[in-house]
Design a protein around this nucleic acid. Structure first.
Lengths: 210, 210
DNA sequence: CTAATTTTTGACCGCATGGCCAGGATTTAA
DNA sequence: TTAAATCCTGGCCATGCGGTCAAAAATTAG
């Protein structure tokens, strides 16, 4: 049987091997994409890097599209889990915002390949519809998380009055934009300095005016 | 003869047709990439959209790589020309910084396809070396322009003391990051609001502390 | 008008890709 | 141990790609 996880209406427990292989292949795909670029990351090459036959990928995934989708899911899930844990540990809104930014950069620095792969992938959504779907599935939740932080900071009186949606997009944008430059050339960007600068800036920009 | 412009050590004047076709094909490539995505933008499809035979592209360009390179050059040249004109018209450093940000967003809003295409392309540089080259050729000049603005603002006493390189990367990053979200879903982002927010923030972040 | 040159066409090539599958190996269940 | 289910292999296929080419068309020069 093929692709239990995807096709079965009622999920049967996927076997040990099924889960292990899926993880292995997804991770292999990330590192192949990061080191060679998406266009060069053919199923054959990914399989070779992982050390299995090409057919294994076809057996465990419905196709390349599903594999890439799972890669994206894994990248976002891992990142968001890390950030959320840091944010939840902070006691008030200003510090949650700060934690969000700092955790983002910290995770980047520790997982460069993930972000190199992500940048390669996010330029590969052909149609405008695919782009919107990616935005809705992956980007919206991030912004929503940020928006919640900002909104609660306004409720508590820590933050001034601004549009939470716009500011969320701005915060997320600043993080991603710096990340992008760093993906292109690690040495052109000092991640820690940029993180510190952004923390200061967004603190100034959100605090209630004195 | 093929690809005069590229191969000739001494550039002979390229013919009318040569120049016109090159422009036409580059523009067609941009719109095809923007509407269908880079992976779908084969030479055949671009040629079809432009309304010529596939061989024409091969005749006027050394290959797909050169075409894409010219597309990137055109995208950056056009954008930077617009921004530079706006910046140069501003009388002092704070207003030049403001002009830089505002002009960036204004040009985005008026040329969406350019940026959709750009995002598609910038995820397509396979090797790390190609990524670094792109960064050096295209991104560095932008940052350098910004850095000059910031540095002269420090010299004139308008700006506080900060690392111009880091802040340049941050400004550029914030602009690009918001642009990215807007490329994924036009309706998810209010460009004008984000621009205004960034202008305010970076003014606060750069001004000499009172 | 004619000859030379530039430009365009459409067919063609070699190649790499994603996907497929028959059959063998391995694991699991009875 | 044996039968069934799962997993894996290696080769195969159709497709679409970038690129090439001879020859036709169009333009330019003489």
């Amino acid at each position: 049987m093929r692709s239990k996880i995807i096709h079965d209406g009622q999920k049967k427990k996927a076997s040990f091997i099924e889960e292990a292989r899926r993880r292995q292949i997804v991770e292999g795909a990330i590192s192949t994409i990061a080191s060679a670029g998406l266009p060069q990351a053919s199923l054959a090459r990914i399989a070779q890097d992982v050390g299995v036959s090409k057919g294994v990928i076809s057996y465990h995934f419905a196709g390349k599209d599903e594999l890439i989708q799972q890669v994206v899911n894994a990248l976002f899930a891992e990142t968001n889990r890390f950030i959320k844990a840091r944010v939840d540990r902070a006691p008030d809104a200003p510090r949650r915002l700060r934690a969000f930014i700092e955790a983002s950069f910290e995770f980047m620095a520790a997982n460069r390949a993930n972000f190199v792969a992500l940048v390669d992938i996010w330029g590969s959504f052909g149609s405008p519809e695919a782009k919107r779907r990616f935005n809705a599935d992956m980007y919206d939740p991030c912004r929503h998380h940020l928006e919640g932080i900002l909104r609660r900071g306004q409720d508590s009186g820590d933050f001034r009055d601004f549009s939470p949606g716009t500011l969320a997009a701005t915060v997320q944008g600043a993080i991603d934009g710096v990340m992008l430059q760093w993906v292109f050339d690690e040495e052109a960007i000092d991640l820690a300095d940029c993180a510190a600068e952004l923390v200061t800036m967004f603190d100034l920009a959100t605090r209630r005016r004195a």
